[in-house]
Amino acid sequence: MKISCQEASNICNKSQYKEASFWDIVKLRIHLLYCKACKQYSKKNSELTSMCDRAGLTMLSKDDKERMKRDLEKKF
């Protein structure tokens, strides 16, 4: 059941995108019980996720950017 800090951070990252399996999360939880550093990292990581959600980030699609680049280059 014991996992390394590297594994723990890996699971933690995946869980930010809901891609960690149930057992991975159980293993992570156990790890967080005794590892202060990972606990801190995990907290910060969740904070980052909630900030990104809150900020309602948007971006241009790849096609849009390509088109913009082409149009801009015509004017050079």
């Binding site: 948007t58 950017k65 680049k69 801009l72």
Partner: peptide
């Protein structure tokens, strides 16, 4: 200007 789209497009878009 050749880097503008890559560097700033998303920022400006937001």
């Amino acid at each position: 200007p050749e880097n503008w789209v890559d560097l700033y497009a998303d920022y400006l878009f937001n």
